[in-house]
Design a binder for these strands. Structure first.
Lengths: 268, 268
DNA sequence: AAGTGGTCTAGACCACTAG
DNA sequence: TAGTGGTCTAGACCACTTT
């Protein structure tokens, strides 16, 4: 009759115990945890068991492991807040550019987009999906892969699909570019507007994990969508995966001049 | 010198190797991978090394491990698409309710929101942030924690903060509720409108992982924001963490009647 | 009962970082 | 050089699922 005991693995118990110590401030933000051997002797378990507990906390982003140095309690993360104007058919000039305070036209030194691959009409499942979103066949599409950097670190990876006929020469080969969206719009001599955008979250697959320098399975924020001409012709499908803890997309529903409301959340 | 060092750990090499076999169809979607002992003897490594490789693929959501049965190649995931009307100050009736096809007023059988905890004016960092968003002090706030289910499975966890004075009796104690937002609005006799909403991605912390039945660090989509009265007074701050692979929020920027454009992406 | 994955131990060697 | 975390082996026992 007694609720039969669920055996909670030792490493999970230890993970929660350590998390508690972090929460109570026994291990303050920025402090170093006891080393693995120290934790082993304190809890009288094998090192591997401690390592599993610590790995759990690292996956939960509670701690940061620095090889050869130690394991530290992570501080709250700073995020790049990106505003999305939800009220109009926003001109698409690239979400990151749109939100950066610094110069956009001349190239913002913090921003970099590096073309890593250009492929024509391949036939993976994602290509099929892109073609479906654009209402075209995969044959006529070109896919451009980029790594987006903010500051020195990789911030996200993007895949763009566009009609091959519209591909600007600037985007035809790997290398640094200023802004894929602007290059496309400029070359085609058109204005791009948002058609739709969607947000979801996935774990990093092995390829994205490599490109972003994060472990496989790390949470990525996915922002995907279609942009098109003002006339409504879809031109670009983009799927960007962003280091989850470094980005936040904000939608403000109130008019700027409206009374009341709260300030848009900024970084933090 | 001959190539000396193996920089890439064996378990990562094995993970990529197995991923390749999945990609090439050697291990088709739905099929069972060889058991751990089988993989051990094929690659001539210890079982733990294989397990690390397999764990990597599981974190990357490429495979699903079923205890006592085997390890299987995962099919593409089905997602619940939730439409966000980006053009107006949308009446907040709860995002999930807004998007469900079935009845909303009478209670949708697929939908369930279970209040798991109610706390007054505690003082964690998240409570402070909530108070800041609402322009109030933590003392006057009540925090309601819920688990949201869609079908039989837990789909997300929500934290709501609201002025204690406005807390409906219906929400004062743990138990099943129909819809927190509606209960609040009904009790306060007001209409709630979106003030702002934001999207980001995080890994599940230990508490959320427990509630959702996922491993710590699993990618979660975070949707947070403030709702308020039409007059602009903020009333509710909500922070929902959703099983990342089960949700997608869609913003349509084009008017429904506009020519061209593409269909809003649906589940899948 | 047999086979699967889950946990844990004991010990070894390696790679990285700091002094 | 000393200390940290990273990888790997060999072996054991357990929990879960199917037959």
């Amino acid at each position: 009759m007694t609720s039969h005991r669920r055996t909670i693995p030792r490493y999970l118990q230890l993970a929660r115990l350590i998390q508690e110590r972090i929460d109570t401030g026994e291990f303050p933000v920025g402090s170093r945890l006891p080393s693995e051997p120290e934790l082993c002797s304190e809890f009288e378990v094998n090192r591997l068991t401690i390592r599993e507990a610590v790995a759990e906390l690292e996956r939960a982003a509670a701690i940061e492991i620095r090889r050869g140095i130690g394991t530290f309690v992570r501080p709250p993360v700073a995020r790049v807040s990106i505003a999305v104007d939800p009220r109009s058919q926003v001109v698409d000039i690239g979400s990151v550019h749109a939100s950066l305070a610094g110069p956009v036209d001349g190239g913002n030194p913090d921003f970099g987009e590096l073309i890593t691959a250009v492929r024509h009409g391949s036939a993976g499942a994602v290509d099929e999906e892109a073609a479906r979103h654009l209402g075209r066949t995969v044959d006529g599409l070109t896919r451009v892969e980029t790594v987006v950097s903010l500051g020195r670190e990789p911030w996200g990876v993007s895949s763009y699909w566009m009609p091959s006929a519209l591909l600007p020469g600037e985007l035809a080969t790997p290398g640094r570019t200023d802004n894929v969206v602007r290059a496309l719009a400029g070359s085609a001599g058109i204005v791009l507007e948002y058609d739709w955008r969607a947000f979801s979250a996935i774990g990093a697959d092995i390829g994205d994990a490599d490109a972003l320098g994060v472990p496989a399975g790390s949470p990525l924020l996915v922002r995907e969508g279609v942009s098109g001409t003002p006339a409504g012709e879809p031109v670009l499908y983009v799927r960007r995966r962003i280091h989850g803890e470094r980005a936040r997309f904000v939608l403000n529903f109130r008019q700027p001049g409206a009374t009341g409301g709260t300030a848009a959340p900024d970084a933090g």
